[in-house]
Simulated assay, not measured.
Amino acid sequence: MPYDLEYLWIDAREELGTCCLVTVQKSADVHKTASGEVRQRRGAQSLKLTGAKIADLALSKGARSYEDQPLSDYEMDELAEEPEILRFLESYSPVSSTEKFLRRQRLVTRKDGKATVAAAILYAEEPATVVPKRCSVKIARYESNEAVPDRKYLKGTPLTIDGPARLLIDRTLAAVAEIIESVPVLGTDGMMSPVKYPPEALKEIIVNAVIHRDYNVSDDILISIFDNRVEVRSPGRLPGHMTPNNILTDRFARNPSIVRLLNKYPDPPNKDIGEGLDTVMSAMKAAKLKGPQFVVEENAFVVVLVHTPLARPEELILEFLRNNPEISNKIARSLTGIASENRVKQVFYKLKKAGMIEPVPGRVRSKSAWRLTDKGIASKGLAAN
């Protein structure tokens, strides 16, 4: 059977009879109707695809990989002289000539020696000059924590990082770390200090974006650094049967050659054992931060690392007040990561009902604030349950 189908028979009321629920699982294949047509669902429409659109759908789903496409103006002679492949082969085992390695790894075409997209991504000094798609990394810093920030919050000109995959990852990590160190965050002690994300979490997210992105999509990886989060936007939707629900348990490599050969480095950035996102989850939890958020957009997959503590908002507010005389709604939102002013008010009212805090007298409207009561000062734990 060409489809992965699930059937569920449901006995409805007598006047309705029996219903059959058919679930068609997502797959990497492009399927045809009985009449030989390929159709794609878009909202309420069922669009008929032909020619190049079918090929693009196959690449997007992972049925085919764009990394295998030959490049018309990038040949083996030029590829064999790239500094990165020469450095790589110095430590590669078994010892192999450049030409033999490239042919054996299917990084050049047999007939005319044209280099593939995977070869350029892995070893070209500037892949963006030979791959007919945008394949660099852009890093933007927004001095804001808005969900959709205005361009006026963009600090400076976004950086563009380029290079062979291994160097691209290293350069991107260094640039992101440098920018993050300049981002201030309010702590429960009332002091502003550099924001901290687990480096292993950032590394895994960036590595995944480079090795699993859809290189058929003409767009760069975009890393946006906000005051309260980091967003890594990787071009292309999730391949094959992958969804945000199974991304921590299942595996599917859209670019298997890039994944495999990057793993051949002496100290590979990818371990290739399916534990990347598990590492991210564990690292964020160890840092007492909430886990990553996964968002599937129209033509991109986004991973968001929020700098929001695992602790409950009530705990964070009480800890802040034990180090500071008062707290406002604005400070509480920054501290807890809650965007809504009304939601923060509800937290304040909950703590007030528990007798832990009270309004600061004489402070109203925009100047209103809260302080600990005697009970709140005496309490070492959280009494508002």
Rank of each mutant, 00 (worst) to 15 (best):
7 Y>V: 09
8 L>A: 10
11 D>Y: 01
13 R>E: 14
17 G>Y: 09
18 T>Q: 13
29 D>V: 07
33 T>M: 02
40 Q>K: 15
43 G>T: 01
48 K>Y: 05
54 I>M: 10
58 A>S: 05
60 S>T: 12
62 G>V: 06
74 Y>M: 06
81 E>T: 11
83 P>T: 10
88 F>D: 09
91 S>F: 13
95 V>C: 01
100 K>S: 15
102 L>H: 10
102 L>S: 06
108 V>H: 07
116 T>R: 08
118 A>M: 05
123 Y>M: 03
132 P>C: 09
144 S>N: 09
147 A>R: 14
148 V>H: 14
148 V>I: 15
148 V>F: 14
148 V>T: 14
165 A>P: 01
168 L>G: 00
170 D>Y: 06
171 R>Q: 12
189 D>V: 02
191 M>W: 08
192 M>C: 01
203 K>N: 09
204 E>V: 02
207 V>R: 08
210 V>Y: 10
216 N>S: 15
216 N>L: 01
227 D>C: 07
239 P>Q: 03
258 I>K: 02
261 L>W: 07
262 L>C: 04
263 N>L: 02
265 Y>S: 01
267 D>I: 11
267 D>Y: 11
273 I>N: 15
273 I>E: 15
275 E>L: 15
286 A>P: 00
286 A>E: 14
295 V>T: 13
302 V>Y: 02
306 V>E: 15
308 T>H: 05
311 A>Y: 10
319 E>W: 11
321 L>F: 04
324 N>P: 04
327 I>V: 12
329 N>T: 10
329 N>A: 07
339 A>D: 13
344 V>F: 05
345 K>I: 11
350 K>A: 10
351 L>V: 04
351 L>A: 02
356 M>I: 04
359 P>M: 11
360 V>G: 08
361 P>K: 09
365 R>E: 13
367 K>W: 09
374 D>V: 11
377 I>M: 13
378 A>V: 01
379 S>H: 08
382 L>H: 05
385 N>T: 13
